[in-house]
Amino acid sequence: MKIDWNFYNCHLQLHELCPSSKILFYLYHDKLELPYLLNASEPHLPPSINGSFPLKIIIHGYAGHVMAEPIVEIRKAYQEIGGKNILIIDWGKLAVLPCYPTAVLNTAQVGQCSAEFVAEIIKKHHPRYVHIIGFSLGAHIASFVGNYVRDSIGRKIRRITGLDPALPLFANLKGTYKLDKNDAQTVDVIHTNVGTFGKMEPTGHVDFYVNNGSSQPACINHHNPPLCSHLLAPTYYAESITSKTGFWGTSCPSYFQYVIGWCPLPEPERPEAKQRIIMGEYLLRGSRGVYIVKTRSSPPYALG
């Protein structure tokens, strides 16, 4: 049954047939500043685009849109290194302020319609691989996309990166309604504000807790430190794409053990420090576990 309700400015869309006029797909490539607005009814890339390039899919969070700063940061970083097709899923009309509860409910519809579109792109253009980067609520949408695409093409996509997956209203949901390690061949997660805007528990094959995991040094004097910390997840990820230094994490059995002081971080010159792994774009395939990452308090944030 189709449900399409408007409560004041809060739009709830459930069980509507895809494509939806409220879900837009923008394609960027290399250094082109102007995007292609793709036709959701006819999923294909323009003839001038090399469809075999890796496909990076970016999904914003609550109150976001294609030109939201966290999304632009990541998109521009990919354009700087080149050689990627960048697909941005703009579901901003279904995620407007102050409508968080309806935005949460809309994630399933956005996930299904986006997955139908992405599956057709994969079938027609055969990109080298597909990598979804989802921020906050967008991380949970990435879960829906991963599962729907798997059912459509018969295999999991290569990778999903969750940038501080949203906590409110997702704490007790089943795995099929939120990001987890079953959604792609590799699921990596960057936690920057656990317990307020972001989920605390490990969510992927590999989970990185940045600084203390809940508050970021750059946000100490911010008027809203939790929100600032949450928004730094995409900033760190964008920097990881172009950084020559890199964000390096040190292994710990669990975030809880780190919080209670059972995982003191080694000094860089000690042997155990050499067993660190890199966080972000250049994550080594097959990485597993929980890692603690330290950053600077101002950009560039990566410490190496």
Score class of each variant (00 low, 15 high):
residue 1 M to S: 10
residue 2 K to S: 15
residue 11 H to R: 15
residue 13 Q to S: 11
residue 15 H to A: 14
residue 25 F to I: 01
residue 25 F to R: 03
residue 25 F to P: 00
residue 26 Y to V: 03
residue 26 Y to T: 03
residue 29 H to N: 12
residue 30 D to I: 01
residue 32 L to D: 06
residue 34 L to E: 11
residue 35 P to Q: 13
residue 38 L to W: 02
residue 44 H to E: 15
residue 45 L to T: 07
residue 46 P to M: 05
residue 48 S to H: 01
residue 50 N to M: 05
residue 51 G to L: 05
residue 53 F to P: 00
residue 54 P to G: 11
residue 55 L to P: 09
residue 56 K to I: 14
residue 56 K to D: 05
residue 57 I to Y: 11
residue 61 G to S: 12
residue 62 Y to R: 09
residue 64 G to Q: 06
residue 65 H to Y: 12
residue 66 V to T: 02
residue 69 E to R: 11
residue 74 I to F: 00
residue 79 Q to C: 02
residue 81 I to V: 15
residue 82 G to Q: 14
residue 82 G to D: 05
residue 83 G to M: 06
residue 84 K to A: 02
residue 90 D to A: 08
residue 92 G to P: 00
residue 94 L to I: 04
residue 94 L to N: 02
residue 97 L to W: 13
residue 104 V to C: 12
residue 105 L to K: 13
residue 107 T to D: 05
residue 109 Q to N: 07
residue 110 V to C: 09
residue 116 E to P: 04
residue 117 F to V: 01
residue 118 V to Q: 03
residue 119 A to Q: 04
residue 120 E to T: 10
residue 120 E to A: 14
residue 120 E to D: 12
residue 131 H to W: 09
residue 144 F to W: 13
residue 145 V to K: 09
residue 147 N to R: 15
residue 148 Y to L: 06
residue 148 Y to D: 05
residue 149 V to D: 03
residue 151 D to N: 12
residue 164 D to A: 12
residue 164 D to R: 07
residue 167 L to V: 02
residue 168 P to D: 07
residue 169 L to E: 04
residue 171 A to T: 14
residue 174 K to I: 05
residue 174 K to Q: 10
residue 174 K to F: 06
residue 175 G to D: 13
residue 176 T to P: 00
residue 176 T to A: 14
residue 176 T to C: 08
residue 178 K to G: 07
residue 178 K to N: 05
residue 179 L to R: 10
residue 182 N to C: 09
residue 183 D to S: 10
residue 184 A to K: 03
residue 186 T to C: 07
residue 189 V to M: 02
residue 189 V to C: 01
residue 192 T to R: 05
residue 195 G to D: 10
residue 196 T to C: 08
residue 200 M to G: 07
residue 205 H to Q: 02
residue 207 D to W: 09
residue 207 D to V: 08
residue 209 Y to A: 10
residue 210 V to I: 15
residue 210 V to R: 07
residue 210 V to M: 08
residue 210 V to P: 06
residue 212 N to C: 06
residue 212 N to I: 06
residue 213 G to I: 15
residue 214 S to D: 07
residue 218 A to Y: 06
residue 220 I to F: 14
residue 220 I to G: 05
residue 224 N to K: 09
residue 225 P to N: 11
residue 226 P to V: 05
residue 230 H to A: 09
residue 231 L to R: 13
residue 231 L to K: 13
residue 231 L to W: 06
residue 237 Y to Q: 01
residue 237 Y to F: 15
residue 237 Y to A: 01
residue 238 A to G: 08
residue 240 S to D: 03
residue 242 T to W: 00
residue 242 T to A: 01
residue 243 S to T: 14
residue 245 T to H: 05
residue 245 T to L: 11
residue 248 W to S: 01
residue 248 W to D: 02
residue 253 P to H: 11
residue 257 Q to A: 04
residue 259 V to K: 14
residue 261 G to K: 04
residue 262 W to G: 05
residue 266 P to K: 08
residue 267 E to L: 15
residue 271 P to K: 12
residue 272 E to Q: 14
residue 273 A to S: 14
residue 275 Q to C: 07
residue 276 R to H: 13
residue 277 I to E: 03
residue 280 G to R: 07
residue 280 G to N: 08
residue 287 S to N: 13
residue 287 S to Y: 03
residue 293 V to C: 02
residue 296 R to Q: 10
residue 297 S to A: 14
residue 299 P to Q: 03
residue 300 P to W: 04
residue 302 A to I: 12
residue 302 A to E: 11
residue 304 G to R: 11
